[in-house]
């Protein structure tokens, strides 16, 4: 029981090493600001922001093992299910609310984005770009894509709302969300040429219009 929880934590640590988005997110967060990280995993991002930018704030995490890892590394962590919304948080009570590589696993996608905009003055959303060329090739070969950024088989994936950069741009337009900044990266390289084709990870800094 304890060793399996430990394994989960170790796996998460291993995965976070490959997370390309921390530095860009740090560039979008102000020094000393108040941050809410939704689906914060083991709290690595918040730790990263705390150490570099002296941010304060909280993580939200549902998983027991991740929750405990947060507590152990000194991250304030609230255990709750994001699908139920952010009713425990006041309007505009955070400088930045972050949803890092979790959007695609949400059932209530529209609701969580609206909730983030309610609670945060700005929000950061990152997700794996389903339009990435390697995904497209696998689809043309007739298979659901499996890759480093989408490391699941179709039958065990937690991802239920995958989208492309074009899709998300449209989503923002339709929901009156201003895109303050958008960065697209592949293997830690920023992609500016045909990002919906060559970009692996999409990162947005957004606010309400």
């Amino acid at each position: 029981m304890l060793s399996s929880a430990q394994n989960n934590v170790n796996n998460t640590n291993l995965m976070t090493k490959y997370r390309q988005d921390f530095a860009i997110i740090a560039g979008w967060v102000s020094f000393g600001s108040k941050v809410l990280d939704l689906g914060c995993g083991d709290g690595s991002l918040l730790q990263f922001l705390r150490s570099g930018l002296e941010t304060k704030g909280y993580g939200v995490e549902k998983d027991d093992a991740n929750w405990l890892a947060c507590l152990q590394n000194g991250t304030n962590v609230i255990q709750m299910d994001l699908e139920a919304g952010l009713s425990g948080f006041e309007d505009q009570s955070f400088d930045t609310v972050i949803l890092s590589q979790t959007l695609q696993a949400m059932h209530n996608t529209e609701a969580i984005v609206q909730e983030m905009l309610r609670v945060g003055r700005e929000i950061i959303v990152t997700f794996p770009n389903f339009g990435y060329w390697r995904n497209r090739i696998q689809i043309t070969r007739g298979n659901m894509p499996v890759s480093k950024s989408l490391p699941y088989e179709w039958f065990n994936t937690p991802n239920v709302h995958l989208c492309t950069i074009h899709d998300f741009d449209q989503f923002c337009k339709n929901h009156n969300i201003s895109i303050l900044e958008r960065k697209v990266i592949t293997d830690a390289q920023e992609i500016s040429f045909m990002p919906n084709l060559f970009g692996n990870l999409a990162m947005y800094r957004l606010k309400s219009q």
Binding site: D64, N76, I78, E90
Partner: peptide, 13 residues
């Protein structure tokens, strides 16, 4: 949270 206090919350199954 409203008072920006240091808090962690666990909902134990």
């Amino acid at each position: 949270l409203d008072n920006e206090l240091t808090v962690s919350y666990a909902e134990v199954t």
